[in-house]
Design a protein around this nucleic acid. Sequence first.
DNA 1: TTGTATGCGTTATCAG
DNA 2: CTGATAACGCATACAA
Lengths: 321, 321
Amino acid sequence: MMPEKVTIADVARRASVSRQTVSNVLNSPDLVREETRERVRQAVEELGYRVNQAARRMRTGRSRLLAVRIEQTQDGMNVFDRFLHGLTDSAAKAGYRVILYTADDDRSEIATFDDLLGAYEPDAFVLTGTHYGDVRTSWLAERELAFVTFGRPWGMPEGGAHPWVDVDGAAGTAAATRHLLGAGHRRIGFIGWPEGSGVGDDRRSGWARALDDTGALERRTDGSAAEGEAAARELIAAGATALVCVSDSVALGALQAGPVPVIGFDDTPVAAAIGLTSLSQPLSDAAARCVGVLTRLLEDDSPDKPDHVLLEPSLVIRRTA
Amino acid sequence: MMPEKVTIADVARRASVSRQTVSNVLNSPDLVREETRERVRQAVEELGYRVNQAARRMRTGRSRLLAVRIEQTQDGMNVFDRFLHGLTDSAAKAGYRVILYTADDDRSEIATFDDLLGAYEPDAFVLTGTHYGDVRTSWLAERELAFVTFGRPWGMPEGGAHPWVDVDGAAGTAAATRHLLGAGHRRIGFIGWPEGSGVGDDRRSGWARALDDTGALERRTDGSAAEGEAAARELIAAGATALVCVSDSVALGALQAGPVPVIGFDDTPVAAAIGLTSLSQPLSDAAARCVGVLTRLLEDDSPDKPDHVLLEPSLVIRRTA
DNA sequence: TTGTATGCGTTATCAG
DNA sequence: CTGATAACGCATACAA
């Protein structure tokens, strides 16, 4: 089992067929007689043959590579690594590999698209962190490149023009709010982010929706634990008996403000560590759906409508609620 | 600026030279007259030419790809994503890209090596989580494949036979212990992992080294916060006035045991969030060094001695100490 | 210093 | 259903 390169010609020789037949077995099995097919499969097995992606790509223009930006750990409480793990896993099952890149802003990310396309020709991009006026998606769409976003196209016309996968933040905070309602709370506050962030506004809306009257028990913060604590104090002083938070980070701060139930968002390691009740995003699922959307895009006769997938987060109940 | 494929022939035409000359400018600039070189460079720029890695790989057998396993988030308090971000960044600067894979154990990881080698031919592997009797490194070494480990080859003959980069855990815990000593503490306990883990034993040794007499103030745990708390109670009862911990996870537990100074290890987001003093690994540096080691391996006339790099962690002092 | 010919491994086309 | 041939873009040996 030496690591000698074994090519399609070796397989062909071994199975006593032409190279073309081997290629057909691999790519269009229907064209080949069952018996021959089996013989070739066996030769492939015995020789440990793997298709050389570089050569295939030369011919077909497909690299079986999915490009993804690896995020900066922002406040450290991010959740991206779980998504990335799921993505790598699902991609592998579908015969794709994930290739990574970094970028500091949308502009440099677009420059990297260009680079990557020239050098490695990824079959598709997976974009995260969509936001209002996201120029990345338009750049890719203009060039008719395949991509999916993990995150809705905030601010785009209804539904958005491109495929996306997202988690329903509003459904999450609504569930959290109902949970507190069920525990007898009536004055439930919300600690959020500044207005104008798609994700933040979405999460806020679920809380508002679940309540007949929000009682104006709402504060916006920069997302830090410090501001979370301050906001929590104000809300408690204003009569709040429980708090729903836009993130684990502000929830962590809120916990310092007093002994009221607090629910965070994202179920980060921090939440697990300190026993914070939080909303968990189905990140493996989301990643798998991203891959699903892309394979459909790349392999099926191009779907007429872009896929949109909205998943529900789940409430992980711990000590704080 | 259409995304049309621009090949080396287009550049040659534009610069009024042969394809060969363009190739030379790119790969062996010394062979080409300065003036011509500049002209070619300009054509490359204007056309937005990027070398097609698939074609190059067909010819040279080099893919400019580094393969890395993306870890499962174990207890969630891992630190790998920061390393991976650094690696992607450094690799890009050196003209490499990172390709990801997953694996559940050493055996399946080796199977993946084989797969990857056949399909994408990565130029090198970056291995993390080295341990006693690591079969991955021997598999790669036997085949003379390029790789570096982030983590020492525990249990291998002095220095180890292959290149590695690591962070000096013992130096870290020694610094932590000295910090507590400087604050007047004399009875300083250590909460560790089970004996036999290279990393755990290394971290323990720094604590022992910094103390004349450890006073047997030591407990081993499975690494969970729960066991960390129990261990801390015992140690405090036994007279410990400060604690050094093998991880942030057990440190978090230890904090619940009482108001004694506690120092964790890894400076995870959890530590930052709860104000836990902790030892921070220079992960970007480590990643950059890994890339450095590999480029030397891949591009220089093979170094006679494998590179070994040992970096120092730094103590991040917060409320708990 | 520059140009010409060749092959890397695969798949698409087309003829048997 | 199978086999021959060409082509993808690049880098090298060799000749000019």
